[in-house]
Design a protein around this nucleic acid. Structure first.
Length: 581
RNA sequence: GCCGAAAUAGCUCAGUGGUAGAGCACUUCCAUGGUAAGGAAGGGGUCCCGGGUUCAAGUCCCGGUUUCGGCUCCA
């Protein structure tokens, strides 16, 4: 029992056993669904008014182990669909009843049940023969969470019990250890340890970047700016607060009002909104003078400060914040420039992601229910994006139904954090609506006025989110070009401090970031601190170094120092920085 | 917003109703060091905020804030 399919059956079996255990412990419980998932399983229960807490997990887990020990058979039976509906109705299992009614609508004629001891549950199967088969399996109930019935926030909140499960106990141990390691890479933890940023109650979900964090932030921004220039973008900067009227004009008032912050200085004063996105600013600049087809594609890029009111409970470190800087751009172009331009944007994404060695995947997001404009235009745009994705990625891209923006379909790029959760970073959005709403125009070859198409795009998504992903990607061991301190100079004794400072000035002149540790500590302790700070190069300076032009350099990760000529060393470090290594 | 949990020194955390603690960090002194923790002394607290119960609350109860794990959302 080792391959993925067997594991899925095991996990599914455990979820069934958990339901049986829960029924024994809480006879009034109502059952929803309990599937196998990556690394484990869950089951959604409705405990009614009964409160559950994490202490109950151990109780449920013990009961599960009892059931496994009893080696009960999973007995399959079938019922005609109407009989099944009647049974669930009679026993008051409303969620099961709804599930079966939906199956009936889909044309199912019968459903299968699996009985385990006294517990019987609607289930498609297959199952292992008997619960005793799971004796050697390694599993653990891990957490309790709320989950809406059918993922719909207007419906009941159920209690979801999560478990992890693997073929044997050793694999479970390995997995738990791996998760422990992953937690060490958490950007929030590293952000604290390395003094990169903090959060405060006075501005929830809005990061405060400390000096070392700003160094990384600025390096990322510099890299990004260079790439924009290379791809012929013009930079613009717009206010982050605009009159409410423009948000009514853009449609954000109707579609996005609940996620915006509004400002009114006083009675009778103008009402402003903090911008939740940058597009109206770019459009105002575009409209400031007449445009010709010769100007297109016109690319306005802006590292734009954005503020979004997130519902409580949705924030998370740097990955989900309320105020952030999007590495935004708005490209105004003609319809027949779309394919070419989107391919250019994708090339830019590759260029920016590549040096970091990040793994990413593209997704096509299609028309949402809450859309603006004509279906025909949407269909055309979607098929165009599909063709582009197919050209570039073959079948290796995903689909997110109904996940487009209200003004057009989009291509999203997802990156993973240390715990394997995915985050959208780059996005390329086609927009056929805003130009009309704002009367953006250009004059074509025949002198006729036409609406351009707008592409909204970001590459990193936001500097904040991208930085969070990178911290976890590197586990805080930043490449030389990003490292807040690139060199640490350690004095052996007091009489070497002055020489250390002189040396540090030489590095600073070469635009190398350097720190001197001249504290009253032993050399060993100072080295230990520098190593823990993950500084790429550590230099120990004593009598020997003062007497020659050679340096004792301890490279990050190395156990021993090497000797190198000072100028050669400077060249080596500068070379790494220039090549963004 | 919803379900569950957490909040104690700068950091990591201990403290089950009776005088607020440890390690690291910090300051000072001694030691003047050679590649992963030298020694000693000292300073540092709104125990998240507000109410309640109690002779007595960091600890129990209620409300709020923030953070964390999920759900939903994420233009």
């Amino acid at each position: 029992m080792n391959n993925e399919k067997d594991l899925e059956i095991i996990r599914h079996g455990l979820s069934h056993i958990m339901a049986a255990a829960v029924e024994e412990l809480y006879p009034d419980v109502k059952f929803a669904i309990g599937p196998a998932i990556d690394n484990g399983f869950y089951y959604d229960f409705d405990f009614g008014k009964g409160k559950m807490s994490e202490e109950d997990l151990a109780k449920i887990e013990n009961k599960m182990r009892e059931i496994i020990k009893k080696d009960l058979k999973f007995e399959k039976s079938e019922l005609k669909i109407d009989e099944a509906i009647a049974r669930e109705n009679k026993s008051g299992q409303a969620y099961k009843q709804e599930l079966i009614e939906d199956l009936k609508k889909e044309g199912e004629k019968k459903v299968s049940y699996y009985k385990l001891g006294e517990f019987i549950d609607l289930c498609r199967g297959p199952h292992v023969g008997a619960s005793g088969k799971l004796k050697s399996v390694g599993f653990k109930l891990t957490k309790l969470a709320g989950a809406y019935w059918r993922g719909d926030e207007k419906r009941n909140m159920l209690t979801r019990v999560y478990g992890v499960a693997f073929a044997d106990k050793k694999e479970l141990e390995d997995y738990l250890k791996m998760m422990e390691e992953a937690e060490k890479r958490d950007h929030r933890k590293i952000g604290k340890e390395q003094d990169l940023f903090s959060f405060h109650e006075e501005a929830p979900g809005m990061p405060f970047f400390h000096p070392k964090g700003v160094i990384i932030y600025n390096e990322l921004k510099k890299f990004w700016l260079e790439a924009q220039k290379e791809f012929s973008y013009d930079m613009v900067l717009c206010p982050s607060m605009l009159d409410v009227s423009i948000w009514k004009q853009s449609g954000h008032w109707d579609h996005y009002k609940d996620d915006m912050y509004f400002i009114k200085a006083g009675e009778g004063e103008k009402a402003y909104a903090l911008r939740p996105m940058d597009c109206p600013g770019a459009i105002l600049i575009y409209n400031n003078s007449p445009k010709s087809y010769r100007d297109l594609p016109l690319r306005y890029a802006e590292p734009g400060l954005i503020t979004r009111k997130e519902k409580s409970g949705q924030l998370g470190g740097l990955l989900r914040v309320q105020q952030f800087t999007q590495d935004d751009a708005h490209i105004f172009l003609t319809e027949n420039q779309i394919e070419d331009e989107i391919k250019k944007v994708i090339a830019l994404i590759d260029k920016i992601y590549k040096p970091f060695g990040l793994e990413y995947k593209a997704f096509l997001s299609t028309r949402p229910d809450d859309f603006m404009g004509e279906k025909k235009v949407w269909d055309k745009a979607e098929s165009e994006l599909k063709k582009i994705l197919k050209d570039i990625y073959g079948d290796n891209y995903g689909l997110k139904e109904k996940d487009g923006a209200f003004y057009g379909p989009k291509i999203d790029y997802q990156l993973k954090d240390s715990l394997g959760r995915t985050w959208q970073c780059a996005t390329i959005q086609l927009d056929f609506q805003m130009p009309g709403k704002f009367n953006c125009q250009y004059v074509d070859e025949t002198g006729k006025e036409k609406y351009p198409v707008i592409i909204h795009r970001t590459i990193m998504g936001s500097f904040e989110r991208f930085m969070g992903i990178l911290i976890e990607h590197y586990a805080g061991v930043f490449p030389v070009w990003l490292a807040p301190a690139q060199i640490k100079i350690i004095s052996v004794g007091e009489k070497h401090i002055e020489f250390c400072q002189k040396l540090s000035r030489e590095f600073i002149k070469e635009n190398i970031r350097v720190e001197v540790d001249g504290s009253d500590e032993t050399v060993g302790n100072k080295i230990r601190k520098a190593v823990n700070e993950k500084i790429p190069y550590v230099l120990v300076i004593g009598d020997r170094e003062m007497e020659s032009v050679r340096l004792a350099v301890r490279d990050r990760g190395a156990r021993e120092a090497r000797e190198i000529d000072k100028n050669e060393f400077i060249k080596e470090v500068k070379n790494k920085i220039d090549n963004r290594e």
